[in-house]
Design a protein around this nucleic acid. Structure first.
Lengths: 151, 151
DNA sequence: GTTTCATGTAACTTTTATTGTTACATTGCT
DNA sequence: AGCAATGTAACAATAAAAGTTACATGAAAC
């Protein structure tokens, strides 16, 4: 896996969990689907566990399960849980504070990014895990790939 | 400078150019203001030159100038010129294509990010370089830091 | 109770992207 | 000619993310 955000990974894993609600799925199995390492899976799902989205059980037949129905899990919750920003963090250089222009640019950029972040979150709220899962089921070979419903 | 996006750097430089329209400013001078290297400045302003936003002149009294009035330079233009995305690029792993879920997740994420990108661009369109410069001028020591006009 | 299978987590290595730096060719002005 | 600037290539340093190894912990099966 190269440089893809943990958010996609989390969503992918969650859809798998949703599609197989009968039994818990192990990190190793998920890692094969996601083409990554079991430890990476645990890291990602671990943060989702802290957010109350999934639960892990140890021992025999242990593994991961969803804690809530997929229709009640919004992408926003997953997004928030991951603590990730879809936006690039444009750190302000500490040495520049002497220059008023830097402060202004940083301030404008910061305000803008905060606004944008809220906007993105509002949009993510409208998509649920179930929405994604339903898109994945019907035609796995001919995805529409256009105009979905999140606009 | 650590890990800040080239966009902030570009804006900072542009404001400086705007505030000193009389004479061209050299990469070295700008580098001191931006606390970075002259070559980095050239790299950043070079892309803005290709976009027709600034011009560089060589030789004596050479340096950088704005090509258009600051009121006609929108942050969107700068943003587009930099070819940067404010959004994190969540690359889809090439090996995952066999799994329908990955395709769906990637598709949903891709659509979402494209939408979001357009949304951000639309907002950036409404802020001009002059807007930023005017905010920087009046009170360099007591920036309001809240509720600006870009919402 | 011991074995087995799973998570939880720490520590380290590898990889990738960005930035910083050096060096030098090119161009324009005096 | 000579200076002063950009333009650009090549390389080093830095930082962030992901991959990996190793092992402790806990729960179920035998």
């Amino acid at each position: 896996m190269k440089r893809s955000s943990r958010l996609s990974l989390a969503l992918h894993a969650l859809v798998h969990l949703h599609k197989q609600p009968e039994e818990a799925i192990t990190s190793t199995t998920l890692a094969q689907c996601l083409m990554t390492n079991p430890v990476v899976v645990r890291r990602v799902l671990g943060t989702l566990r802290e957010a109350g989205i999934v639960a892990a059980s140890k021992g025999h037949d242990g593994g991961w399960r969803l804690l809530r129905p997929a229709a009640e899990i919004s992408l926003r919750q997953v997004y928030a849980a991951m603590g990730e920003s879809l936006l690039i963090r444009t750190e302000s250089d500490p040495g520049d504070i002497q220059c008023g222009i830097v402060r202004t640019v940083n301030s404008v950029m910061g305000d803008f990014l905060a606004d944008a972040e809220a906007l993105l979150a509002a949009r993510l709220e409208r998509v649920s895990l179930d929405d994604i899962a339903r898109q994945a089921t019907p035609n796995p070979l001919h995805p529409h790939h256009g105009a979905h419903h999140h606009g």
